[in-house]
Design a protein around this nucleic acid. Sequence first.
DNA 1: TTTGTTCCTTGATCCAAATCAAGGCGCCTG
DNA 2: CAGGCGCCTTGATTTGGATCAAGGAACAAA
Lengths: 243, 243
Amino acid sequence: MSERKDIHNSDIPVICRACEARHKGICGALTPDQLTKLSKQTQKTAVEPDSFLLEADQPVDMYSNILNGVVKLTKLMPDGRQQIVGLQFAPDFLGRPFQNDNAVFAEAANTVALCSFPKKALEDLAAESPDLEHRLHEQALRELDEARDLMLLLGRKTAGEKVASFLMLLIRHMDPEREITDGAVALELPLKRADIADFLGLTIETVSRQLTKLRKAHVIEVENNRTIHVPSLERLRAASGDF
Amino acid sequence: MSERKDIHNSDIPVICRACEARHKGICGALTPDQLTKLSKQTQKTAVEPDSFLLEADQPVDMYSNILNGVVKLTKLMPDGRQQIVGLQFAPDFLGRPFQNDNAVFAEAANTVALCSFPKKALEDLAAESPDLEHRLHEQALRELDEARDLMLLLGRKTAGEKVASFLMLLIRHMDPEREITDGAVALELPLKRADIADFLGLTIETVSRQLTKLRKAHVIEVENNRTIHVPSLERLRAASGDF
DNA sequence: TTTGTTCCTTGATCCAAATCAAGGCGCCTG
DNA sequence: CAGGCGCCTTGATTTGGATCAAGGAACAAA
């Protein structure tokens, strides 16, 4: 009932001990016993940028936790038009529970580390542990809230607001360690321009131009194309069109 | 009567007997006892078009099942720009579990009938019935799948494709009874042009023009502005840009 | 060193959808 | 029955972002 996980760290499988998914991810819902059982079937893998983790409409027999890196969830139209419909960060759960095929592609945006386990293993655990299903439910609701924010972005924001909102979103998700004094922040873009465009419903050129505009307006500083300094979060937020 | 169905039915509270939510909605997860307990705290209400059911960022103390009609979930920008981020149909569950405020407005699109009950009553039931939480989880996942389809629509489809996709979406959700031979369908639009525009990320004028275009291309026939005949679903699907 | 590749930026032009403007139809109310 | 209102359509014009086109910087391979 009331096991103190912290005291009995020795009960925790070695490969889970330092894992973020055990704290903020779904594995936190598992007892040491369940964790041990699951960990025997897990596999940690590293994945190169731009490789596929899940194919849309293909049956999936594995779920994963994201340990590191950023995963793009994409949709494709028959003629090749593409939209990124979600970005997932560690320690998110990756997969579509209760369904054998997946409506989206999942693709590594940068180098991604995964902890994967068989679909069945998780579903068996979920059936016996309401707390695990509850965590999955909570993540689904969080993703839904995010998806709806993105719908407002895609449907009603200008290109400039989209790019500023994207930077705000990254800052919200990336390690809060980087937060510097008085609302200044530095961040490394995990996505190339083409991905940012596919995420925001824009073209590469427009993304580039809007970043230049933000730079010239001193809202951001750009270093080596991928490192962004934000001197005032407040100014960036204002550019994003949100409250 | 001594039919098995009626005997079984006699355990069910009167107001729940004919209710769709008991079959396809969340109430199907409840035992007759639980249903009786809940039904004592429920209230059926009829709501006029354009009245608010939930205010964003306001605490909510009720959840509802939609018994009839269509509910718009909307987001608003500080300057008044608006986006409909979801449409909900009977017998959907309405509300954001596990959170006291709501990130969206919920507004009746047409005349809506609701069955409402206190937040706490449902959450207590969910705690004791994993099956209920499972149903809520399933609905959240369905809404997430829909939201992602809409993100592709908003980010990458043309105005014409958006309008055709919207009609396809309505057909998918409205009563399948109306399906006529060889893929012909008639439907009543539950939304006015302004709502369709807010849903598709367009303006009223563009929606109107695209409907005219579909009409002139004989993909649809329009009657009284609100009734649409689709002679060939196949042709409409092709116009929607989807597979 | 050159040559190629990938990723990114910038400029010129074009176009789909927004905006601006007017009018039509059904419906209610005085 | 006039007048007003809500909802929708259509036309003219404008514009934000797409498309087309060129080139720069970083890096690897030859």
